[in-house]
Nucleic acid binder design. Structure first.
Length: 477
RNA sequence: GGCGGCAUGGCCAAGUGGUAAGGCAGAGCUCUGCAAAAGCUCGAUCCCCAGUUCGAAUCUGGGUGCCGCCUCCA
């Protein structure tokens, strides 16, 4: 089975074909001028999962994500704060990375910054001028959309139609109203760099063309970002990169849907953001990821204040199941063992679940369907555990389930806590001893004492459950 | 005005031609000293209209509503 992805460029699902030894991935990063919010977390978590899944499938990846650290918004914000724009950008770049770390997002291989790649950007602009795709006027350099016949191919628009929609007055220096600045002449009190056209700074779209080419070359596999970037940002990137090299920029364009809050796109300018720092004060990162993966990456996702509480119960069941498994089987490596009837059936269920999970993810990274598979597995495991009449510590089938959950829900999706098994200040043998004593007390109907042990352990986040097979414990997540 | 997307049970969400995954909430039951967890059982004909087809949530046409982009934005 191959991996299939929906390509915005062709508007079709296509089989993933990898050119080099690694899957090249370029995801448009953030403009670091304010706090990181849930809308920023979606592409990050989605691509984190895509990468981890590709690794699971045997691919290697090389992932680049830029920081647009020179931009009008940064300059304006820095002016308000009386700060140096680059210092402001540096601060929020760091904040962004901290947020991603705290969400369990693996770092990209490179996080290039615009301010550190001026020579690459200037070289690209020069090349575009040489090839007749750009022209300099009065210290500005504009990209000529008419020089690129395929302009509009990503967003499926024609230049004439776009022109009709132009809402703002056009710079008289432009040859065509849709031409866009790739180098902007410096204004007073702005960060500026020397260039063949005088002091200035890069336009918004040019850095992604320069940076993706520098670190990934041409025709790398994935180019990603929010669907709000399709036009003009990605359209312009294509015009720049393909205009300069004559080769395709990327093979597959993947766009994630927006997160809505109060029925509108969550964005700083609309003022309806929920920051990552804020949300992680109340909810664990695994639950945030569970939310982000609960629908397909390309769908819109509605957030509201009670959302994570509403979905928390199902998420909790996944965690409970894994924690129970961990305690039944131990977390250590277990040697393969022959399986009897029921255990053999469970082992078959495990294999089937993995196959279904893989099939779901192979089909355009359908995380929502894959989570459904995990719940089906959970269901069968719970039924098995409930009816279990032999020694669980030797149950290799349960161990297989635990391993599968750890890999799929833990390592790849990051939606369950795998490290929540340390009872603070309690060693496991001691805990077992307490449970033994409590069982003894219960058999003597000393319920007050038995309940006290349960209550006090609950204060330590150790949950005791009495089952027909004896008491079980797990850590509360 | 142009381009793109979406509309599935109370809520969330899979499903692109063959008869509606899964989760939450709700109801009943089982287990049980209590609690908790778990198990079992119960729910939709898929926005509307007209077509194509033996057969459509899935295809076509026409509506309606919502979202995104066309200005910075993940």
């Amino acid at each position: 089975m191959a991996v299939y992805v929906y390509n915005t460029l062709t508007r079709k699902k296509e089989e993933l074909a990898v050119g080099g030894d690694k899957v090249g991935i370029y995801v448009c990063g953030v403009t670091p001028y304010s706090d990181t919010h849930l809308g920023h977390a979606r592409p990050s978590v989605v691509w984190d999962v895509i990468k981890k899944y590709l690794h699971y499938r045997g691919y290697q990846t090389f992932h680049v994500q830029n920081f647009t650290d020179i931009d009008d918004k940064i300059i304006n914000r820095a002016r308000e704060l009386g700060m140096d724009p680059l210092a402001l950008a540096e601060h929020y770049s760091r904040e962004y990375l901290e947020c991603m770390d705290s969400l369990g997002v693996a770092r990209a291989d490179r996080y290039p910054k615009v301010s550190e790649h001026m020579p690459d950007i200037i070289a690209l602009i020069e090349r575009l001028i040489e090839r007749g795709h750009a022209y300099a006027v009065n210290g500005n350099v504009f990209y000529s959309v008419l020089s690129f016949p395929e302009y509009g191919k990503l967003s499926n628009q024609k230049i004439e139609q776009l022109q009709a929609g132009t809402r703002f007055e056009v710079d008289p220096d432009k040859r065509h109203p849709l031409d866009f600045a790739i180098w902007k002449k410096a204004r007073p009190n702005e960060p500026a760099w020397g260039s063949p056209w005088g002091k200035g700074r890069p336009g918004w779209h040019i850095e992604c063309s320069a940076l993706s080419y520098k670190y990934l070359g041409s025709e790398f596999e994935f180019h990603g970002g929010g669907c709000d970037l399709i036009f003009p940002h990605h359209e312009n990137e294509i015009a720049q990169s393909e205009g300069a090299t004559g080769r395709p920029l990327a093979k597959y364009w993947l766009h994630n849907g927006m997160i809505n809050f109060r029925h509108e796109k969550m964005s700083k300018s609309l003022g309806n953001i929920v920051t990552i720092k804020e949300i992680l004060k109340t909810y664990p990162k695994e639950l945030v990821r569970y939310f982000l993966l609960s629908s397909h990456y390309s769908s819109e996702l509605e957030y509201h204040d009670r959302k994570l509480d509403e979905i928390g119960r199902g998420w909790q069941r996944l965690n409970d199941c894994v924690n129970t498994l961990a305690n039944l089987t131990g977390k250590n490596e277990m040697e393969p063992q022959p399986l009897d009837g029921a255990a053999a059936a469970l082992a078959a269920v495990v294999r089937e679940a993995e196959a279904r999970f893989t099939a779901a993810m192979d089909d355009d990274f359908n995380t929502a369907l894959a989570i459904g598979v995990l719940f089906d597995l959970l269901h069968q495991v719970n039924a098995y555990v409930a009816g279990m009449d032999h020694d669980p510590s030797a149950d290799y089938a349960l161990y297989q389930v635990y391993r599968l959950f750890s890999r799929l829900a833990g390592d790849i999706f990051g939606i369950i806590k795998l490290d929540g098994q340390q009872a603070p200040g309690l060693s496991e043998p001691l805990l077992e001893l307490l449970l033994e004593l409590r069982t003894e007390l219960r058999s003597q109907k000393q319920y007050e004492l038995a309940d006290r042990i349960r209550d006090r352990l609950a204060e330590l986040n150790v949950v005791i459950e009495d089952t027909p097979q004896g008491p079980r414990w797990r850590m509360r997540t």
